[in-house]
């Protein structure tokens, strides 16, 4: 192609053009976006899969800490025993579900013990009730929260994200948030019921620091899982991973299928190229 050089020049120029204002904005200060550390997740990258033990631990953190305020209305008990998830057995899930009551108009007292097909019961009957109980702030639903948060990377990082298939901005943010509670700096105006968080937009968050070292006694280690520290850092990682699974339960099978599909397409493209070349052989074009 004779215009190859032009294309390259154009791309370079466009890159410079895009980088210019981006850099200008960085230097201009604007509002400082805190840096969010990337965690080395087991489910990142094209071969990523969830770590069953981590999901089990994360589920325990969710169940014992977060679930008292945060609903997960799309999360069904049966998901816990589905392929690619925390890997509980069906009997375990049935027993777990039976510990919870779910609303059912046809049952006595309008509630009954949950079965695996039921959704995780919400801690509050309505959004308004949730607000009333939390000083006016609504604890967001966990179902797809890990995908509803993101990190906006500056140029050129965001451009590389397309090639590394970086999809963990949400969990990186949640992990950073859970570990980002700090003493408010001198002169920072906090309202009653607000807490200072380094990564939360505006820094004043209505959620009190939910995790402290040792608050959850991991059952997984007894069940044969690895011994992990019971620290805020570890809890944050585990519950973030759990939330990613909650938002994207078919991630592992999707990525595995993708690998096969792309392999197939490359082979097919090779054969198509050979066929096309064979047909065009001897024709000047």
């Amino acid at each position: 192609m004779m215009s190859n050089r032009i294309v390259i020049a154009a791309i370079a120029l466009a890159g410079a053009l895009l980088a210019g204002p981006a850099l200008a904005a960085e230097e201009g200060g604007g509002h400082s976006t805190p840096h969010i550390d990337r965690v080395d997740w087991s489910f990142a990258g094209i071969f990523g899969t969830y770590d069953e033990h981590q999901l089990q631990r994360g589920f325990q953190v969710y169940r014992e800490v977060c679930a008292s305020c945060h609903s997960a209305r799309l999360f069904a008990f049966r998901n816990l025993s589905e392929e690619g998830g925390p890997g509980f057995s069906e009997a375990q899930v049935r027993a777990l579900a039976a510990e919870y009551q779910v609303p059912d108009d046809s049952a006595d007292g309008e509630t009954r013990a949950a079965i695996p097909a039921d959704r995780w019961p919400s801690p509050y009957p309505s959004d308004q009730a949730a607000r009333d109980a939390n000083g006016g702030a609504l604890p967001p639903d966990f179902s797809v929260l890990a995908k509803a948060r993101g990190v906006s990377d500056p140029f050129p990082t965001w451009a590389f994200n397309y090639f590394t298939a970086y999809q963990e901005g949400g969990v990186d943010y949640i992990h950073a948030l859970l570990t980002g509670y700090e003493e408010a700096p001198e002169g920072f105006d906090l309202q009653p019921g607000q807490y200072y968080n380094e990564v939360y937009p505006g820094h004043a968050i209505s959620m009190p620091p939910p995790l402290v070292d040792g608050v959850v006694d991991y059952a997984d280690a007894e069940a044969g899982g690895a011994e992990v520290p019971e620290t805020v850092e570890q809890y944050s990682r585990d519950v973030s991973a759990f939330m990613m699974w909650l938002a994207e339960p078919h991630l592992a099978s999707r990525k595995a299928a993708g690998f096969r599909v792309i392999l197939f397409l490359v082979l097919f493209a090779g054969l198509m190229y050979a066929t096309k070349s064979r047909i065009w052989k001897g024709i000047e074009h």
């Binding site: 995908k147 994200n161 298939a165 970086y166 999809q167 990525k255 993708g258 397409l265």
Partner: peptide, 11 residues
């Protein structure tokens, strides 16, 4: 196309 669908559907 497949890259995005399977590895980064939300990007």
């Amino acid at each position: 196309f497949a890259w995005f669908v399977f590895f980064a559907p939300d990007i």
